[in-house]
Nucleic acid binder design. Structure first.
Lengths: 196, 196
DNA sequence: TCATACAGTGACCGATCGTGCTTTTTTAGA
DNA sequence: TCTAAAAAAGCACGATCGGTCACTGTATGA
């Protein structure tokens, strides 16, 4: 049997869990609310996940998949280095402003909430963020030939991520529409300085 | 009567609430846990706060007071502009790394958690962050004579805050000890560019 | 078509949630 | 020291928490 129905339901549960976690935080997601939102009974959820934690784990994992797909979407077709970095940065800003209009970026929410809560959720998050960071670092290394140093590339990736975080707060909490302009200006200056 | 005992207990409750909110998030703080941690019964808490929300409000407010006292501590004695900004930035990094070793910065946690949850908590947070931001902006304006433009100052304050956020993630979630070096280097470059 | 594996329900568990109400213990001013 | 007020405990409430279990309908592969 290829359990088509079950997989579809499971996907809806995962998506809804991610949605709620992005808004209220993982620690404040309740099985009852998720069940009601997807039109199931609480006990129905347990046919798809053995525990709440397994459900959250799937939500975070799938959230990261969506994040990568969204941000890297057109990047492969672009030449490495600056064009790719600019595309990814813009996608990343969109990801905060549009795609996640309700709740903000699940990953950022998780990063702040879980940074001091050991467990599988935190482990998964760290691993995936580190992989993503390595990808950015590699892209910065492609900025110059001969390439810049490892440290310089990490420094640049650090700043890139910082501007994304700053943009998120400026846009979502402070409701400042200039957030995007600030972030883009800061990133452009970073690229100019790094590429030289 | 000057209710000395009551005030002391209230202060302990507020501090403990802030501590737990920084770790688990405001939405996941429970009265039972707070009560047990300060050595009271649940109902004892209600002699000091009319509701859980009032308690959280007090915790956030006091958390911000502590944040300001810590970060601005020695800044008043320093000349305006660069010396002050550098002191504040270093204090801010310390605030993340040392003072809040367990739980991280309460304000940052609140900023990410509450950015899409309307209510008095979010209102308080926004107001206080905006005031703090205005203070930073004024300090950047003092960097040059004649001063830089309003927009440039806001842009600089945005980047300063961004590096703080980046440092927090790099240090607390990714456990990278180079976080401080990255943040300081980025901030120094920002000051050099802005001051010129 | 038919058996069966799977999706989903509803009742229920013990624990804990936030919050009242009443009573007891502490505290501090006179 | 005595007393009035403040501080805290005790208890109970309805709701909800994550989770189990026995059961039923249904979709699917043979």
């Amino acid at each position: 049997m290829s359990m088509r129905k079950g997989e579809a339901t499971r996907a809806r549960i995962v998506a809804e869990t991610g949605r709620q976690a992005a808004i209220r935080g993982f620690g404040a997601v309740s099985l009852g609310d998720v069940a009601e939102a997807v039109g199931l009974s609480k006990s129905g959820l347990f046919k798809h996940f053995e525990s709440k934690e397994a459900m959250e784990l799937a939500a975070l994992d799938q959230g990261f998949d969506r994040f990568l797909a969204f941000n890297w979407a057109n990047a492969d077709e672009l030449p490495p280095g600056r064009p790719r970095l600019e595309a990814v940065f813009d996608n990343w800003l969109d990801w905060t402003e549009v795609e996640n209009a309700a709740g903000g970026c699940l990953i950022n929410q998780a990063a702040v909430e879980l940074d001091d809560q050991p467990g599988p959720l935190r482990d998964l998050l760290r691993m995936r963020i580190q992989r993503w960071r390595a990808r950015l670092k590699a892209e910065f290394l492609a900025l110059r030939d001969p390439p810049i140093s490892e440290t310089e590339a990490e420094q640049a990736a650090f700043q890139m991520k910082s501007f994304i975080l700053g943009h998120s707060e400026q846009r979502r909490l402070l409701d400042d529409e200039r957030a995007r302009a600030y972030a883009r200006a800061a990133f452009k200056a970073l690229l100019d300085r790094t590429q030289a």
